[in-house]
């Protein structure tokens, strides 16, 4: 049996065993093209990776930062921050409305005859008919405490004199009654004017 042996020169034919044959040129061209393309692709890949790696890192970093910061910031803190932002917004809105709304309304009312508008479009009789005028008047009178006002308004010097005379009279009644009760040796005194002291004051 013939053992297969392979030998070849650099530019010579390939010898396989006892048979020698030449490689086609197209194969060599293909190999050369393949190897060259592989080397170029590798070089381009290196450059591309060098350029794309930082960009990819930047693209991925925000997500990582957000995730890291979200893990550090708790829910109540964020709620407080949101509440403060909301309150600040409301305050600004109120200040804006408070400042400009009266001006706007005033300018608008200057251009409108409100009285004539009401007279033309509002049926005052119907409104009055629906109101409980007597009840409102009664509530107003109750709140005013008219008896107290009348009493205070009539508390002139003359009425003070009358009050003084009356109190002295009551005091004298008590004294006379007590004296008579002692003279008559009464155990139970008569009906006393409670609360009246020596000066006629309670």
């Amino acid at each position: 049996m013939i053992s297969p042996t392979v030998s070849a020169d650099v530019d010579g034919p390939v010898v396989v065993g006892a048979v020698a044959f030449r490689m086609p040129a197209a194969v060599d061209i293909g190999v050369d093209v393949f190897v060259s393309a592989t080397r170029q692709a590798k070089a381009v890949g290196r450059v591309g990776f060098a350029v794309a790696a930082p960009l990819a890192g930047l693209a991925l970093r925000p997500a990582r930062l957000l995730q890291r910061r979200w893990s550090l910031a708790s829910g109540p803190v964020r709620a407080e921050q949101g509440r403060q932002l909301r309150l600040a917004g409301e305050q600004q809105a109120v200040e804006f409305v408070s400042r400009w709304l009266p001006v706007i309304i005033d300018r608008a009312l200057d251009r409108v005859d409100v009285t004539q508008l009401v007279l033309d479009h509002v049926q005052l009789e119907r409104i009055i008919a629906r109101l409980d005028v007597v009840g409102i008047a009664r509530e107003v009178i109750d709140e005013l405490d008219l008896p107290e006002i009348i009493r205070e308004s009539s508390s002139s010097m003359a009425s003070e004199t009358v009050v003084g005379v009356r109190l002295r009279g009551v005091e004298a009644d008590e004294r006379v009654g007590r004296i008579l009760d002692r003279v008559l040796l009464r155990r139970n005194s008569r009906v006393a004017a409670d609360g009246v002291g020596p000066d006629g004051l309670a």
């Binding site: 009644d173 409670d194 309670a202």
Partner: peptide, 15 residues
């Protein structure tokens, strides 16, 4: 106020 306590009581001789 100082006269409210004896309102309604029988009056004495002096008054």
């Amino acid at each position: 106020v100082q006269a409210r306590s004896f309102q309604g009581r029988a009056a004495g001789i002096v008054t």
